[in-house]
Structure formats: C-alpha cells, structure tokens
Amino acid sequence: MRKACSLCPCILKATIEKEKLRRKKPVNFTPIEELFRVFDETANILQEELDCTYLEALAETGENIFHGDVIQDEVSELNRKHLLKHYGEITITKYSKEEIRKSFQLAILKGMQQNIQPNHQMTPDAVGMFVSYLVGKFMSKNISFTLLDPAVGTGNLLFTVMNHLTDKDVHAIGSDVDETLIRLAYVGANLQEQSVQFFNQDSLEPLFVDPVEIVVSDLPVGYYPNDVRAADYEMQADKGHSYSHHLFIEQSVRHIKDGGYLFFIVPNSIFESEQAPKLNSFVKSHTFIQGMVQLPLSLFKNEAAAKSILILQKKKEGAQAPKNALLVSLPKMSNRQAMQTIMKDMDAWFKEEK
C-alpha cells in the first residue's frame, strides 16, 4: 500500500528524544516540534481518558484544537484543565500549513508504529513535493481547478500538493474506506484550512462526485476482494481477483474531465505483471501517457518496493499525445547537482511539449 518515508521514523525519534530532554532542561523547539509535542501529550491524555487508540485520540485532540475547547463530555474536570493548559501553549493560526501538516503527520506516524498498520503508511514528503511540482507544471495556465484523491488515507499526499500550490485555488475531494484515516484527514484539513470534501467509502464503489481536472493518488497495491464489483470494470481479471491499483486507475479516469491529468504513484513493475495486458489496453484506449518518473531507490526498503509516478492525460477531441513522453529516473534527492540537471531537462521538456 502506501510507502512510508525512510526519514520519517528518524525525525520522529529525534523529536521524541528532544521532548525527553525538555523535561530535564529548557530546549528551543522548532515550530514543528512545538506542535508535535502538544498533539502527542494531549492525545496521550485522551487515549487513557476515552479508552481508545492513539490515532483515535489524536483525531479528538485535533478537533479540540480546531474548536479551541475540549468538546468531549466524558473528559474529567482535572484532565480538561490539563488539556486546556496544553492547548493554551500554542496558537494554531500562527503556524504555516506545512508546519501543521508535518507535525500532525509525525503524530500519526507514531500512532501507526504503535498499532503496527503496514497498509496505512504515508507517502514520503519528497515524493509529495515532486508530485506538487509536476501538477504545477501541467496546470501552469490554470488559476483554479478541482482535484481528487480516491485513496486519500490521512491526506498527506493531498495536503502536500495543495500546500505547495500556493498560487492556485484548489478545491479537493478525498475518499477512503478506512474510517479512522479519513477522520484524521478531515481534522488535518480543518487545521490547515484547506478546502476538501471527504467521503468515507470503498472508492471502487460508485463515487457520486462531479468530474475533476486533476487526480493524484498513491495507489493501494494488491488484490481487490470484491469480484462482483470488479466485474463492472474493463480491467477485471479473467480469473481470480483483480488488481486494486488497476481498478483505481480506471475509476479515476471515469471521474476526470476530458483532457484532465492523472498522477499515480505506482510500482515500477506495473506494466510487467500478469494483468498488465489489460492495463496497457485500457491506458492506450482512454489516455495519453505523458510520462513516467522513476523515484530514487533510496526512498524504499528494497528494489522490489520501488515506485514511480505515472502521468496520464484523459483523451479529448483535439488533444494529442506528446511527441516524446517524459521519461525520467530521479537520482538521490540529496544529490543537488544531479537533481538540478534533471530539473533543467524537465523544464526543457515542458517548454517543448506544453
């Protein structure tokens, strides 16, 4: 499913260690660390008070911070005072959207590690920022547009893209089957003051949303268990379960406007699997392949888990495929010189093709 950033656990560990030191002597916190500390300490209080998971408590404390009060009636008067004391240490409006996103996602990551949820991992920040760069380039002439993430999870990819497109008016839609994750995404959107409409449902069931201009998604990889529902898709497997990531691509194409762009984070081997012929046929029939950007192997645990960004455009009358698709293999993000060379090559491609 979603690939966790290899750097995130290190950042989380450093933040927790710094918090331990704070209790011994004064420490200068970064804004992200300040917010994480409040999210974490108040979530711990609510987790014990409400007898729930850390992630559920995190959603509750996020709601409290948004409303500026303790809204849970079950909280004791003593803990209510403790919570209000912590909330009084911050003014959420003084933090940037990215500071809120990063601190909230660090707390979510801690909760995921505690509950061991391998299928609920976050898209690496570096990947999200690169997707936002690509969306900005393809939508450079658009002042505003609508965006869909059909596998939104906690919203990390969606918010990264929205937060980095500061010159655009973006109205987004997110859908996910997991109730806890979609609630965390909802709370995150409120705290970041982002315009997002959320649906808690299986996104491969009918989606009652208007067609959008952009789709971004870190696709859930694996088999879709509902063969009856899969039968409504062109990419239904001839036998056995269909690939969910294939069906998500088809569902996304159904819900995007003619000429709209789709940005999918997919396995590098997506066009080499046993069900790839149907995917190839669907993609050729309904879309133009704009490009494929292979992400650095250093972002992933091993080569088998490596992923790429697949860029498609839904066909429309008068539109044509690019003369040359954008095919890029990214170096390590830390290799500044190599990245600058790649970015220059990509800028040249956009000037020629767009």
Rank of each mutant, 00 (worst) to 15 (best):
Y54I: 03
Y54S: 11
Y54D: 02
Y54K: 06
L55Y: 07
L55W: 06
L55H: 04
L55S: 08
E56W: 10
E56D: 14
E56N: 10
A57T: 02
A57M: 06
A57V: 00
A57S: 15
A57H: 14
A57C: 12
A57R: 12
L58A: 12
L58F: 08
L58C: 05
L58M: 10
L58I: 08
A59W: 06
A59Y: 02
A59G: 10
A59N: 07
E60D: 15
E60G: 03
T61P: 01
T61G: 00
T61R: 10
G62F: 01
G62R: 14
G62I: 07
G62W: 00
G62S: 12
G62V: 00
G62C: 10
G62N: 09
E63P: 05
E63W: 08
E63K: 13
N64L: 00
N64I: 03
N64G: 04
I65R: 01
I65F: 01
I65Q: 01
I65D: 00
F66Y: 14
F66C: 08
F66H: 10
F66L: 03
H67P: 01
H67V: 00
H67C: 01
H67L: 15
H67S: 05
H67E: 09
G68M: 06
G68F: 01
G68K: 02
G68Y: 00
G68A: 05
D69G: 12
D69P: 11
D69L: 11
D69V: 11
D69I: 14
D69C: 06
D69W: 10
V70E: 09
V70L: 01
V70M: 02
V70T: 14
V70G: 03
I71G: 10
I71S: 10
I71F: 10
Q72S: 12
Q72E: 15
Q72V: 03
Q72F: 04
D73F: 09
D73T: 11
E74N: 10
E74F: 13
V75K: 09
V75D: 05
V75E: 07
S76P: 03
E77C: 08
E77F: 12
E77K: 14
E77S: 09
E77Q: 15
E77Y: 10
E77A: 15
E77N: 08
E77I: 15
L78F: 11
L78C: 09
N79K: 13
N79S: 08
N79Y: 06
N79D: 09
N79A: 06
R80L: 03
R80M: 05
R80Y: 09
R80P: 05
K81L: 13
K81Y: 06
K81Q: 15
K81S: 13
K81W: 07
K81T: 14
H82D: 06
H82T: 09
H82L: 13
L83K: 01
L83I: 13
L84W: 08
L84F: 01
L84M: 15
K85G: 03
K85I: 02
K85M: 08
K85Y: 12
K85F: 13
K85L: 12
H86R: 15
H86T: 01
H86F: 09
H86C: 06
Y87W: 12
Y87L: 03
Y87E: 03
Y87C: 00
G88W: 11
G88H: 15
G88A: 15
E89A: 09
E89H: 15
E89V: 04
E89L: 11
E89I: 02
I90G: 03
I90N: 04
I90Y: 02
